[in-house]
């Protein structure tokens, strides 16, 4: 659905992204992983249209991103950034409702349905009338997710593009997995979902994993191809081993320095 080709971004003399290729396909949950400073958020900003690459192109639905009108884009894709601060006492429900802004309030019925669906998907019904500034970090993340979902929700849940920057960083275990399950579920329905993730075991739930390191795409492919102890250990600079759990799951686990290895 959206493709970055040879995207390079520089700030001053520093290269943040170096000729990165990434394709976020419909029907697939793509996880973007990498160490701190690898360029994950920069790449997400390029895909969201916030930042023009110094060279390279971004194409959405076959059209170059800059040719999209802003409102058109807002109806096609939603973005959830890391912790959005808010100094004004909007309720959680009001924040979610802001997601319907691009629809212009022309179909109130549909707006209402969108809010209800988003509230259920992100599990924020209980937070609805609470002031946003009083919510915990994890609750805020869920509210922001609901806002993004409300923005691109349609009655048929037609495929859209969802760009999520660390949507699970402040979530508890249950909500982390619920969020990933939701993202995967939307992908099954034909959505294109990109999630920047830190937890590699969450990333393993994705259909496709892109591993960034120092602004360069170090590896891309299925989780089984990318998330190997060798690749991960090389990029993160820490020994990693794959362990099998009692229930038969396979888990990446870092080895503390000095431990057997």
């Amino acid at each position: 659905m959206i493709r970055a080709d040879g995207v390079t971004v520089r700030i001053g003399g520093r290269i943040l992204l170096d000729r990165v290729h990434l394709s976020v396909e419909a029907g697939r949950l793509t996880a973007l992983v990498g160490p701190n400073g690898a360029g994950k958020s920069t790449l997400l900003a390029v895909l969201a249209g916030d930042r023009r690459p110094d060279s390279g192109t971004v194409v959405l639905d076959g059209r170059p991103l800059p040719s999209w009108r802003q409102r058109e884009l807002a109806l096609r894709r939603a973005v959830m950034l890391q912790d959005a601060g808010l100094d004004f006492g909007f309720t959680a429900g009001e924040v979610v409702a802001l997601g319907r802004l691009p629809h212009g309030g022309l179909r109130p019925e549909e707006d209402r349905d969108a809010l209800a669906a988003a509230a259920d998907m992100a599990a924020v019904r209980d937070l609805w009338t609470k002031p946003y500034p009083a919510l915990s970090g994890g609750e805020r993340q869920r509210v922001q997710l609901a806002r993004a979902l409300a923005q691109v929700w349609s009655p048929g849940l037609d495929p859209r593009l969802l760009l999520l920057d660390e949507p699970t960083s402040a979530l508890d275990l249950r909500h982390q997995w619920a969020t990933l399950a939701l993202a995967r579920d939307l992908a099954r329905r034909g959505w294109a979902v990109l999630a920047v993730l830190h937890d590699l075991n969450l990333a393993a739930m994705a259909d496709h994993v892109a591993l960034l390191n120092g602004g360069v795409l170090a590896a891309a492919g299925t989780p089984a191809e990318v998330l190997t102890p060798e690749t991960v250990g090389g990029v993160y600079g820490i020994a990693v081993e794959r362990v099998a759990t009692a229930s038969g799951l396979s888990w990446l686990s870092p080895l503390p320095p000095g431990a057997a290895g």
Binding site: A45, A48, G49, D50, Q70, R71, E72, L73, A74, L75, A78, V79, L81, A84, G85, L86, D87, F88, F90, V95, L98, G99, L101, P102, Q151
Partner: peptide
């Protein structure tokens, strides 16, 4: 008023919502 509401979320967020 509405675009300003969106901008309280942040300027990037407002831009994502289609606000100029």
């Amino acid at each position: 008023a509405l675009p300003l509401n969106a901008m309280m979320l942040g300027e990037r967020e407002a831009g994502h919502l289609g606000v100029a």
